[in-house]
């Protein structure tokens, strides 16, 4: 049943999917980094109302399945907003939004880890609030959160295949198509698994290096 020929053939068939997976991970991650910081700041600065809404949204999104959110974004939010993005962009934004709810907590922990004395010294020097954030607090908080952001990026990479549910042809989507074309699915799915394994390993080693460099125990 197992065909080595199909197995090797599936390699090149999956490559275009790999780029889609990469693109979705990178774009989704950038969105998650930025949006997560915005969420964290809204909560830290305690913007009235907005802060509570953000808290509720973050809790809700974090407690419900990404797959349903991807559907919801594609089939409901998009038409409602009157826009027509491609499945790729719609799914990537849903992915980024989902993970922003995790990164916001990461930023929050990083900001909380900056000693209170740094705020007090900034007050004693009369530094404006904005400058205290951009010049003192965030430059100290962000290096601390890089390893955690890295870990979430790897998680995102492994969740991008969910985009195939709205028709994005990523690695797994490509494996599915390949399987359907050749009436044999096991080779391509195995190859897809190997793709993930081979790519996850070096990135997680990189994250561990980051950890050692930035998180002092």
């Amino acid at each position: 049943m197992w065909s080595w020929e199909l197995f090797w053939d599936s390699f090149s068939a999956l490559l275009p999917g790999l780029w889609i997976t990469f693109a979705a991970t990178v774009c989704g991650a950038l969105l998650a980094y930025v949006l997560g910081l915005v969420f964290a700041l809204i909560r830290q600065v305690r913007v009235p109302v907005l802060s509570q809404i953000t808290f509720g949204l973050v809790e809700f999104i974090r407690s419900t399945p990404l797959l349903v959110q991807i559907f919801f974004f594609y089939w409901v939010v998009q038409p409602w907003m009157g826009v027509q993005w491609s499945a790729f962009w719609s799914g990537t934004i849903a992915l980024g939004l989902h993970y922003a709810c995790y990164t916001s907590e990461v930023y929050r922990a990083g900001i909380d880890a900056v000693p209170k004395g740094q705020w007090e010294a900034s007050t004693a020097l009369s530094l404006p609030r904005r400058r205290t954030w951009t010049g003192v607090i965030l430059p100290q908080a962000i290096p601390r959160v890089l390893p955690a952001l890295g870990n979430y990026t790897i998680s995102m990479f492994k969740e991008t295949p969910l985009l195939l549910a709205i028709g994005v042809i990523d690695i797994v989507g490509a494996a599915k198509d390949f399987g359907a074309d050749h009436y044999s699915v096991e080779e391509a799915y195995t190859m897809a698994g190997i793709f993930f394994l081979v790519l996850s390993f070096p990135s997680s080693i990189l994250v561990r290096r980051l950890e050692r460099r930035f998180v002092k125990h």
Binding site: G117, E120, A121, S126, V136
Partner: peptide
């Protein structure tokens, strides 16, 4: 008003960045 006042802290509180 606080611009006229300065403070030196027990823990220095220099900006490490």
């Amino acid at each position: 008003v606080r611009k006229r006042i300065g403070m030196v802290f027990q823990q220095f509180n220099l900006f490490p960045n």
